[in-house]
Simulated scan of single mutants.
Amino acid sequence: MKGKAGLVTGAGSGIGRAAAIEFARQGAAVAVLDIDETAAAETVEMIEKNGGAAVAVLVDIADERSVRSAVERTVAAYGGLHFAVNNAGMASHHRKLDEMTLDEFERVVRVNLTGTFLCLKYELPLLAGGGAIVNVASNGGLYAIPSAPAYVAAKHGIVGLTKVAAVDYAAKGIRVNAVCPGPTRTPGFDQVAVGTDLIAMQEASTPLGRMATAEEAAAAAVWLCSDAASYVTGIALSVDGGRRA
């Protein structure tokens, strides 16, 4: 990744932060995009402490003007765009379909699916000499998660967008793939799990016997953006410790 520049959305924490740090470790310049300016600045500080190049950029992926501005700021900062990881999103669980309000459903879809669409819309025309995009979906984009109808619908949509973009832009040398992590130990997940047996349940249902780390999920996204994956496009890569098998 040395000499390349790109962006990671939702890079203020979790998988996004881990991906931004790994890109920088491999020599790339990274725009750290997040709706939380403080969290984005913390990621930049982590990267710079290790000699990497990064800039924090505020973005709300549910807002078209914000997305356009963030992508343009990345290109202005680094003179080009070689990769992008569209990772930002929101969770939505513990609601069966008939218990969910329309406002909640539309909000989850707006952030996860429409947000990914907006990122793709403004990234694709600016990728320098081809390039690669990874959309972070979920194993919920491959099969059902009980009581998560909006989340699962949106993540399935991300997988569909990924496949269409991969086909439509292949002639321009652009590769588009999705990463579909299973349950991953992030600060956000740990907060939800406090006082429950959720972590033990997830570990028990995973063939490898543990949840993924944010770094493991991020590594798949970084690989898909690298030249090592130069003939890989249009896939939805499950990173789930064998759960789908």
Rank of each mutant, 00 (worst) to 15 (best):
Met1Cys: 05
Lys2Ser: 11
Gly3Pro: 02
Gly6Arg: 13
Val8Asn: 03
Val8Pro: 01
Thr9Val: 10
Gly10Glu: 10
Gly12Trp: 14
Gly12Asn: 08
Ala18Glu: 11
Ala20Glu: 11
Arg25Ser: 14
Arg25Gln: 15
Ala29Leu: 08
Val30Ser: 14
Ala31Phe: 08
Ile35Asp: 06
Asp36Gln: 12
Asp36Ile: 10
Glu37Lys: 15
Ala39Pro: 01
Ala40Trp: 13
Ala41Ile: 08
Thr43His: 06
Glu45Leu: 12
Met46Val: 09
Ile47Cys: 05
Glu48Met: 07
Asn50Tyr: 13
Asn50Trp: 14
Gly52Phe: 09
Ala53Thr: 09
Val55Thr: 07
Val57Leu: 09
Val57His: 06
Ile61Gln: 13
Ile61Glu: 05
Asp63Ile: 00
Arg65Leu: 12
Ser66Ala: 09
Arg68His: 11
Arg73Lys: 15
Val75Asp: 01
Val75Cys: 06
Ala77Ser: 15
His82Met: 05
Phe83Ile: 05
Ala84Asp: 03
Gly89Arg: 10
Gly89Ile: 10
Met90Ile: 14
Ser92Met: 14
His93Ile: 15
His94Lys: 08
Glu99Trp: 06
Glu99Gln: 06
Leu102Asp: 05
Leu102Thr: 04
Leu102Met: 08
Asp103Ala: 11
Phe105Arg: 00
Glu106Val: 04
Val108Thr: 00
Arg110Met: 01
Gly115Trp: 06
Phe117Glu: 04
Glu123His: 11
Leu124Thr: 00
Ala128Ile: 05
Gly129His: 08
Gly129Gln: 06
Gly130Ala: 10
Gly130Tyr: 11
Ile133Leu: 15
Val136Met: 11
Asn139Thr: 13
Ser147His: 14
Val152Tyr: 09
Val152Asn: 01
Lys155Ile: 02
His156Asp: 00
Thr162Arg: 02
Lys163Glu: 07
Ala165Trp: 05
Val167Met: 15
Lys172Tyr: 11
Gly173Tyr: 10
Arg175Ile: 12
Asn177Asp: 08
Asn177Thr: 04
Val179His: 03
Cys180Val: 05
Pro183Tyr: 04
Thr186Met: 09
Thr186Val: 07
Gly188Trp: 12
Phe189Gly: 00
Val194Leu: 11
Ala200Leu: 11
Met201Ser: 12
Gln202Pro: 01
Glu203Ile: 07
Leu208Phe: 06
Gly209Leu: 04
Gly209Val: 02
Arg210Lys: 05
Met211Gly: 07
Ala212Lys: 07
Thr213Gln: 14
Thr213Ser: 14
Glu215Asp: 09
Ala217Gln: 05
Ala218Glu: 07
Trp223Leu: 13
Ser226Gln: 05
Asp227Pro: 06
Ala229Gly: 01
Thr233Leu: 15
Thr233Cys: 13
Val239Glu: 03
Gly242Val: 02
Arg243Ser: 07
Arg244Met: 05
Arg244Ser: 03
